[in-house]
């Protein structure tokens, strides 16, 4: 049971970790705001679904589009102006960004949890001794689907390929007439999409509340364990972290899941400094 529910949430963490990887890969920036982008995306969905009253699918599409625009806007307004500055400036800006996003959410929607919205029909399925909600099952499927879509996107589309190129060197890409700025912009937009989808799924299973950002933090260890650079790694890392989280909080209790994930992060750092699925660094000349 713990294993299953861990995997369910893990798929969502993996999805959010994918957003983290998208940004890191293209620009080497650790985006601390990823969890808060998830929060914001989830609330956007709630807004479209409940406040505007759109039908479910339309609300999702609207939220995802807004998530893309939001991510791209963040890049445009802050990180683009820091190109050429030390990395540390960019990373700190993402830290402050998380303050702003959390602040915006509580300014607009308040600090209390919102009324529950079911993104999907609620019923339970029995699998032998286990009881699963269709909610979490659909969430799991969607997360894997979205992740798979992103992996295909990286591998086979022009712009996905360009993103992988940008990760290897900005100057090379510019010499081929590829606008690095545009690619980075799209990367952030997609990171926003990954966060929003994760937010919708997480919100509809755990409820729409400020604490979601904390759960979004789990994406960081997930991404790191996956090697920070590989989409497949992010998903596997997410599943692993989901597993650890649910088993540890199942047996230890006391919300030990999140700290446990970070313990695993630190241990990974000791054993495999660049994660388990990171690119093998090619250093020959």
């Amino acid at each position: 049971m713990l294993v299953i529910s861990g995997m369910m949430n893990g798929a969502i963490y993996g999805l959010v970790a994918l957003g983290f990887v998208l940004v890191y890969k293209a620009s080497a920036v650790l985006n601390f705001a990823q969890g808060y982008m998830l929060l914001f995306g989830a609330y956007l969905f709630w807004f479209f679904r409940v406040t505007v009253g759109l039908p479910l699918v339309l609300a999702m599409i609207a939220a995802v589009a807004a998530g893309f625009a939001g991510g791209a806007l963040i890049e445009r307004l802050t990180l683009r102006r820091l190109i050429g500055q030390p990395l540390i400036s960019m990373v700190t800006v993402t830290i402050f960004l998380s303050l702003v996003l959390e602040g915006l959410v509580s300014m607009i929607w308040g600090t209390y949890p919102l009324q529950h919205v079911a993104a999907f029909p609620e019923s339970t399925i029995r699998l032998g001794k286990m009881v699963l909600t269709t909610q979490s099952l659909i969430a799991f499927g969607l997360a894997l689907l979205a992740a798979g879509a992103l992996i295909v996107f990286f591998r086979f589309t022009r712009i996905g390929l360009a993103m992988r190129g940008v990760a290897e060197g900005h100057q090379i890409m510019q010499s081929m007439g590829i606008s690095v700025r545009r690619i980075l912009n799209v990367s952030w937009g997609l990171a926003g999409v990954a966060a929003t989808v994760g937010g919708i799924l997480l919100g509809s299973t755990l409820g729409f509340q400020l604490g979601m950002s904390h759960i979004g933090l789990l994406a960081i260890p997930a991404a790191f364990i996956g090697g920070l650079e590989s989409p497949e790694g992010a998903i596997l890392g997410g599943l692993l972290i989901g597993l650890i989280e649910s088993i540890v909080s199942g047996y230890v209790g006391n919300a030990a899941g999140v700290p446990a994930a970070f313990v695993v992060l630190i241990l990974t750092m000791l054993v495999r400094p660049y994660g388990f699925f990171g690119l093998e660094r090619i250093e020959r000349v």
Binding site: T92, L97, S106
Partner: peptide, 22 residues
Amino acid sequence: PIGAASGMMLVFIGSVAILFGV
């Protein structure tokens, strides 16, 4: 909504810090 004041602080100071950073 309730809690907006604390959110305001985050937005305000966060933006100031971003402005400085940028």
